[in-house]
C-alpha cells in the first residue's frame, strides 16, 4: 500500500522520521474515532456507549488538530466530553440506576427490518464514498488565521454573527423550557 500521498497530507515536513511519527499519530486518531463509534453502537450497556461516544470525540479532536484548528479540537473536548457526555451520563443515572436485564423481546419483522436497515446503510455509505472519491480535494490550507482570541472574537461577531445569535436564541429557549419544567415540578404535596 502506498502511503506517500497520505503522508504528504498528514505531515508536510522535510524530516522523514517526524513524518512517520505524525502519520502514526494520525492513524491512531482515526482508529480512536472509529473504535469509539463502534463501541458506542455495539454495546448493550448504555454507560459504555457514552464512553464510546467520548472516545470518538477524543479521536475527532485529534483530527481537528491535524486540520490546523487546535481551537476547535479543544472546544470538541470541552463541550462534547465535558458537557454533552457528562449530561448524558447524568441523565442515565437519574433515569436508570440499575442495569437492565438482557431483553428477549420478539422481533416483529425478522426479515424485512434488517433488509431495510442494510439498504439504508449501504445507500448512505455508497453516497458518502462516491462524494469523497468524486470530489476534487484541494490542498489543505496551512493556516486560516492565527487562532488568537482576537481573531476568534472578530469572526464570531462579524462573519458568523448570524449563527452566533441563532445559537444564543436556541440556548435561551432551552433555559426557558428548563425553567418551565422545573417550576411545574415544584409543588408541595
Amino acid at each position: 500500500m502506498n502511503l506517500t500521498p497520505l503522508l504528504a497530507v498528514a505531515a508536510p515536513s522535510a524530516n522523514p522520521a517526524s513524518n512517520w511519527i505524525t502519520l502514526g499519530l494520525f492513524i491512531m486518531f482515526v482508529a480512536t474515532t472509529v473504535a469509539g463509534a463502534l463501541i458506542a453502537v455495539n454495546t448493550v450497556r448504555i454507560i459504555r456507549s457514552v464512553s464510546g461516544l467520548a472516545l470518538a470525540c477524543v479521536g475527532l479532536a485529534g483530527l481537528f488538530y491535524f486540520l490546523h484548528s487546535p481551537f476547535l479540537a479543544l472546544m470538541e473536548i470541552l463541550i462534547y466530553i465535558g458537557a454533552v457526555c457528562v449530561t448524558i451520563i447524568f441523565g442515565v443515572m437519574l433515569a436508570e440506576p440499575d442495569e437492565p436485564a438482557p431483553e428477549t423481546h420478539k422481533r416483529p419483522y425478522p426479515v424485512i427490518a434488517p433488509l431495510v436497515a442494510v439498504v439504508i446503510a449501504a445507500g448512505i455509505f455508497g453516497g458518502l464514498a462516491k462524494l469523497a472519491l468524486g470530489h476534487k480535494w484541494e490542498a489543505p490550507v496551512a493556516k486560516i488565521n492565527d487562532g488568537s482570541v482576537a481573531a476568534i472574537g472578530t469572526s464570531l461577531l462579524s462573519t458568523y454573527s448570524m449563527a452566533f445569535e441563532l445559537i444564543s436564541l436556541v440556548l435561551l429557549v432551552a433555559i426557558l423550557g428548563a425553567l418551565v419544567i422545573a417550576r411545574g415540578g415544584r409543588t408541595k404535596e
Binding site: 467520548a54 479543544l74 472546544m75 473536548i77 470541552l78 466530553i81 465535558g82 458537557a83 457526555c85 457528562v86 451520563i89
Partner: peptide, 8 residues
C-alpha cells in the same frame, strides 16, 4: 478542556 474530563 482537559479539566472538564475529570468529572466524567
Amino acid at each position: 478542556a482537559f479539566g472538564s474530563i475529570n468529572v466524567m
